[in-house]
Design a binder for these strands. Sequence first.
DNA 1: CCTGTTTGACAAACACCGTTCGCGACGACT
DNA 2: AGTCGTCGCGAACGGTGTTTGTCAAACAGG
Lengths: 239, 239
Amino acid sequence: MSRRDPFQARPVTSRRGGPTKDPLSRDVIVTAALDLLTRQGAEGTSLRKVAAALDTGPATLYAYVDDLQELQALVLDRALGEVRTAGAGDWRRRLLALLESYFEALSRRPGLAQLAMNAIAVGPNALRIMEALLGQLDEAGMEDATAAWAVDLLLLYVTAVAAEHGHRRGKPDPLAGAARALDKVSAATHPRVHALRGQMLAGDGPARFAWSIEVLLQGLLRTPPAAPPRSPRKSSRRR
Amino acid sequence: MSRRDPFQARPVTSRRGGPTKDPLSRDVIVTAALDLLTRQGAEGTSLRKVAAALDTGPATLYAYVDDLQELQALVLDRALGEVRTAGAGDWRRRLLALLESYFEALSRRPGLAQLAMNAIAVGPNALRIMEALLGQLDEAGMEDATAAWAVDLLLLYVTAVAAEHGHRRGKPDPLAGAARALDKVSAATHPRVHALRGQMLAGDGPARFAWSIEVLLQGLLRTPPAAPPRSPRKSSRRR
DNA sequence: CCTGTTTGACAAACACCGTTCGCGACGACT
DNA sequence: AGTCGTCGCGAACGGTGTTTGTCAAACAGG
């Protein structure tokens, strides 16, 4: 393991010299981790590599972070910081733009979406996104009870799409394998899959994404809040 | 590394004795892996532990399986074998039953759903499920182009719900943390999240699941096949 | 029957991973 | 100046997936 480049070495050489190397806070750790994740992908990101990037040992990070999981949650929320919640146009256009931005943020960093599947996001940026979504759904005239669940449904679905889309990166052609497998299905045993095999994988990303969101919105706008015998607590209807 | 218990040793002691221990095929490996996954959970399942359960070393498995990923794909499809695709009643009831069965198969084994998120399922049982779904959607009067994408949307969503649900196991109260975080949001900065914080986490599993599927179906039945300017290849309309 | 060749199980090693522990140098008090 | 408490962090622990090299058993040919 080569020591760091002397040309980029920090001003003073002493490794013990107090704040000689900048103070190493949660913030710089999260920044470094997100940086690594963005540049190197999911496999390149580990606690040890983050530590190495900061020119220290793995144990040091545990002074600032409880756990790998906590670090991942922080990285996730940091990445969600670039999601644009403000937009122009009617609620439908703004909602689609918001979800596209969310999708983009997750799927630009390979592995981040899988990470988002493993942790219910409740960081400040996740809350900001939820708040914006709820506003747009309210504007659409959706009932509160429906909107509360709709947020979860929409974000979960988009996260899942990003995760499925994200793990395609890296590997040469992970869905070429799927295409081959789908092409091999016999028309005798699986007539419908055989007939539709071309269409199942068709469609470019953005169009299919927009179609999916439209499907979810149509459903959400037309489905009564919940099962009839439930909701003992009447919510104070807003607007 | 202690050798195995002599009391449970197989009839003949020679470790080289040809088929003294049963032949060790892909099949028994997958069976053992699924068994381990079912009983021990996601953390308890690793290549080495599967090998140990079969009383052999990790290298041996590589004679039958290319990769951990391939083994996981095989395990996933094996688990999907218990999904019931045949049911009674109208298409809507059968479709819900099928998706519930799929959800149950994924979420009974902690970690299996996360695994399903990382591999496009194209094994025989996945194909069987797709075929059944396409049949039910056709019965519902859905157009082919819509149905082809609907299969993906439905399975992806249910898989994601199972994954989110699945990683709750093990940890004591992973969404209690979410509840606490949601309770702390200030009404000033996030009024809507604050107002709806109770409802966002409300609802028991099955009711919320059924509601979600109903939302997806309503949307799928009411949304035109795809974006207008696309689809250069006209599909031979079925039915 | 003996002998060469092929086969394939598998112990050991490799390069990682997340996490814990304890030493020891430092800054701050007395 | 001397002592002490803090805390950064090197080293170690127990795990992971995967590769490699060896060597006994099974088989084919004379």
